[in-house]
């Protein structure tokens, strides 16, 4: 087995063990805890009064636009890492290129802020 696959297997085993740990602990707790559900107990919690409407009520997700902004910058972040590692070898040319790239993205951010994306009073 090559080191390449060992890397992936190690990561998978660690993540899997995290899930297993939760499953085992909850399973062990099942031997100790009482189980006596009643209709009242299994109601959704709403500060002691009967729940009004459904739990998945409509919500104004104000940060929808931020998700779009995030996507743009996150792609940029992925792009910037290989550049950062190789910067010393690539020299001044790569530096100027990246500064131009960052400046364009910053201009986009300034535009979004000036458009009032961050103002919440409707």
């Amino acid at each position: 087995m090559t080191g390449y696959f060992q890397d992936y297997i190690t990561v998978a085993v660690f993540a899997g063990f995290g899930a297993l740990l939760v499953a085992v602990t909850i399973g062990a707790s099942a031997l100790l805890r009482p189980k006596n559900p009643t209709p009242t107990k299994s109601q959704s919690y709403e500060c002691g009064i009967d729940p009004v409407g459904g739990g998945w009520s409509q919500t104004h997700v104000r940060y929808y636009i931020f998700a779009l902004l995030f996507l743009i910058f996150d792609v940029e972040a992925v792009f910037i890492f290989p550049w950062a590692v190789q910067l010393e070898a690539l020299g001044v040319f790569a530096l100027v290129e990246m500064v131009v790239f960052i400046a364009i993205l910053l201009a986009g951010l300034v535009y979004a802020v000036r458009k009032g994306v961050l103002e919440w009073e409707s």
Binding site: I26, A30, G55
Partner: peptide
């Protein structure tokens, strides 16, 4: 203590 507490899952 938490190990011995009832595990409630809401109906909905």
């Amino acid at each position: 203590k938490f190990l011995q507490k009832e595990d409630l899952v809401p109906r909905d």
